[in-house]
Measured scan of single mutants.
Amino acid sequence: MATADDFKLIRDIHSTGGRRQVFGSREQKPFEDLVDLGWLKRSSVDSRATHYQITERGTSAAL
């Protein structure tokens, strides 16, 4: 179930172009929650960072 923080984060991601790069596993937790909701997808993972991209469902949630 989505929380107020989830909606705040997806709106922030949407307003800044729909993509986010995250460093460190602790910082990934809120983004992984949005992946579980179907609002974000992991577009790539490298040794230092994970890249996320907003989905259509995420765009709808952000509006």
Results as ranks from 00 to 15, higher is better:
Ser60Ile: 15
Ser15Ala: 14
Gln53Gly: 04
Gln28Ser: 08
Leu37Gln: 03
Met1Arg: 13
Phe31Ile: 03
Arg42Val: 15
Leu40Arg: 00
Gly18Thr: 02
Gln21Asp: 10
Ala2Met: 05
Asp12Tyr: 08
Gly17Met: 05
Thr16Tyr: 06
Asp5Arg: 10
Thr59Phe: 06
Val45Leu: 08
Val22His: 03
Ala62Ser: 04
Ile10Trp: 00
Asp33Phe: 11
Asp46Ser: 12
Glu27Cys: 13
Asp46Asn: 11
Ala2Lys: 04
Asp36Trp: 11
Arg11Phe: 10
Lys41Phe: 15
Ile13Glu: 01
Leu40Phe: 00
Met1His: 13
Arg11Asn: 05
Thr16Ser: 12
Thr3Phe: 05
Leu63Asn: 07
Thr59Gly: 04
Glu56Asn: 08
Asp6Ala: 11
Met1Glu: 12
Arg20Asn: 03
Arg11Gly: 05
Gly24Ser: 09
Asp33Tyr: 12
Phe31Leu: 06
Ala61Ile: 09
Gly17Thr: 04
Gly24Asp: 11
Trp39Thr: 00
Ala4Asp: 12
Val35Met: 06
Asp33Asn: 14
Ile54Cys: 03
His51Met: 15
Gln53Trp: 09
Asp12His: 09
Asp6Asn: 14
Ile54Met: 06
Ala2Asn: 04
Ser43Ala: 14
Gln53Arg: 08
Thr50Arg: 08
His51Leu: 15
Gly58Ala: 01
Phe23Gln: 11
Lys41Gln: 12
Pro30Ile: 07
Val35Trp: 03
His14Thr: 03
Val22Ala: 07
Arg26Ile: 15
Ser25Trp: 12
Ser15Val: 10
Ala49Cys: 12
Glu32Cys: 06
Ile13Val: 07
Ser43Asn: 10
Asp46Lys: 05
Ser43Cys: 09
Trp39Gln: 00
Met1Asp: 10
Gly18Asn: 03
Lys8Gln: 11
Lys8Met: 11
Asp46Val: 07
Val35Gly: 02
Thr16Gln: 11
Arg19Asp: 07
Ser43Lys: 10
Gln21Glu: 14
Arg11Met: 11
Ser44Gln: 13
Tyr52Ser: 01
Val22Ser: 04
Val35Phe: 03
Ala49Gln: 08
Ala61Cys: 06
Asp36Asn: 15
Pro30Thr: 05
Gln53Met: 12
